[in-house]
Each structure stands twice: as C-alpha cells, then as structure tokens.
C-alpha cells in the first residue's frame, strides 16, 4: 500500500494534490456562492494560453502563466462590470481567446507539447520541487487573506449593495478574489489539469453546501473535503494508471453523489416524519 510513497515524484505529487484540493476547496466556497463556477473553467483555459507563451519565450511558467491569468481575471471583471455584456459572455470572450492562442502556439511548436499536455490533463510526473514551494506559499497567503477578509468577502458575496453602504470596499474585495482565484488555478493546474480544475473548485464547495447551512462551517468543511479528494484521487491514480486530474475529479464527483443522495434521503425521512406527526395530530 505504501509502494508509491517510495518515489520522490509521487511524494511531491500527492502533497501538491492534497494542498491544491484544500486550496480549491477554500476559494471554491466563494466561487460557488457567487455562481461563478464558469470562471474557474475559463481561468484554467487562460492559464493554458499563458503556459504556452511562457514555454515558447523560455520564461518561468509561474511568471508567464501567472501574469497572463491575473490579467485575464482582471479583464473579465472589467468587461462584465459594464453590464452590457454579462459575466458569462465576458469569461467566454477573454478565456477562449487565450486558449486559442495557446492552441495555435502548441500546434506550431511540437517541443513544448509535453508541458502543455500536463497543463491540460494534469500529471504527477509534471510536479517539481518548485511546484511544492509555490503551492505552500500561495496556500499560506490565500488562507491569510480569506481569514483576514472573511467578513468582507462574505458580505460582498451575499449582499454587495448593503456591504458597500456599510463601508466594505466591494470593488477591491472582488478584485482580490479574482487574483486569489487566478493564483489558485495557477499552482493547482499541473496536478489537476486545466480541463478539470473547475471541478475541483466546485465539487468540495458544492458537497459542503449540501452538508451545512452556515458559510462559517463551509469554510473549513470544503477545504477538508478538497484535500481528501486530492489525496485519495492521486493515490488511486497510481494504481489506475490514469491522469491524476481525472481520478481526483471522479473521487470528488462520487462523494458529491453520495452526499446528495444521503441528504435527499434524510430530507424525505424528515418530511415523512412530519407527515406522520400531522396525521396523528
């Protein structure tokens, strides 16, 4: 059972998968509650474009894809703020353009395709020491920001107009969330993959939402679920010999389905008991 742990690359992979799961779970709470699930999908595509450009230019992946991702996130915010174009259309325009650039570069430059495959599908072999350091640093910063600004993030998510009246700088909070989201996507993408990262942003948060009615509890439950999806998914991918992102997503989806069915049965049971009580009365 401990066989894969004797390999350094697997140790790095499972650390990054677990931390990425926790990080996506934490940020995903606000992504899901703001109905922004599509943005995670879009940003991962934007990062794909940035990764392709940085590969060709020979600059660091984190620098190139990071700047590209943050720029894309801020552009989405800017375009959707005009209200003439909805947020979903803004995400579609900005990120598909970025993805198309990535595809064009990939087709012209066969030498970088292995790295790009890793970005698209996630690969335990694509995780280096720098990835571990990056996710630890980004993770600590994101946790500090979410804890420090939890009230403002929650208020601006629930009721932006009243939050503004109450002194919360909503535009600043929204921009901070976009930057945090971009950084999360950037450091998680090598293990989970650009095509499946939106699942990791949505699944832990959506599963925890089914389990609790309080955002306070969601904020620790969702990272816990995300971390367990990452750990179990990465471990199972070793034996299944399937890309890590796919197995992590399957584990998360299965857990969501189980919790969904369990809470549905519990709700029916409660309604049944209420009916019984009413009939007796």
């Amino acid at each position: 059972m401990l066989e894969p742990f004797q390999f350094g690359f697997f140790q790095r992979g499972i650390i990054v998968a677990t931390l990425a799961g926790a990080l996506c779970g934490l940020v995903g709470v606000y992504v899901v509650l703001r109905s922004m699930s599509y943005i995670g999908h879009g940003l991962s595509h934007a990062v794909f474009g940035g990764a392709a450009v940085s590969s060709v230019l020979g600059v660091s992946y984190f620098l190139g894809a990071g700047l590209w991702g943050v720029l894309a996130a801020l552009m989405i915010g800017r375009v959707s703020a005009r209200r003439v174009i909805g947020a979903d259309a803004a995400i579609g325009v900005v990120t598909t353009a970025s993805f198309a650039i990535g595809l064009a570069i990939q087709s012209r430059s066969g030498s970088v395709s292995r790295t790009l495959d890793t970005v698209l599908f996630g690969n335990v072999l694509g995780v280096f020491r720098g990835d571990v350091a990056a996710i630890v640093i980004v993770g600590l910063v994101v946790v500090a920001l979410v804890v420090a600004f939890q009230r403002e993030l929650t208020f601006a998510t629930f009721d932006p107009e009243v939050a503004e009246v109450s002194g919360v700088r909503v535009a600043m909070i929204d921009a901070m969330l976009m930057v945090v989201l971009s950084a999360t996507v950037l450091v998680s993408v090598r293990v989970i993959g650009a095509l499946l990262i939106s699942a990791m942003l949505v699944l832990p948060a959506a599963t925890s939402r089914l389990m609790t009615n309080s955002i306070g509890r969601m904020l620790w439950l969702s990272p816990l679920l995300g971390a367990s999806f990452g750990f179990v998914g990465m471990y199972a991918s070793w034996y299944a010999d399937v890309p890590s992102g796919a197995v992590i997503t399957i584990v998360g989806s299965t857990m969501f389905a189980i919790v969904y069915l369990a809470t549905d049965v519990a709700k029916r049971h409660a309604i049944g008991k209420l009916d019984e009580h009413t009939a007796l009365a």
């Binding site: 509650l33 929650t154 998510t157 009615n213 309080s214 955002i215």
Partner: peptide, 8 residues
Amino acid sequence: FPATVRDV
C-alpha cells in the same frame, strides 16, 4: 445563501 441569523 448558507447564512444563519447570527451570520447575517
């Protein structure tokens, strides 16, 4: 929205 009276 997942908010209790206390949260709001």
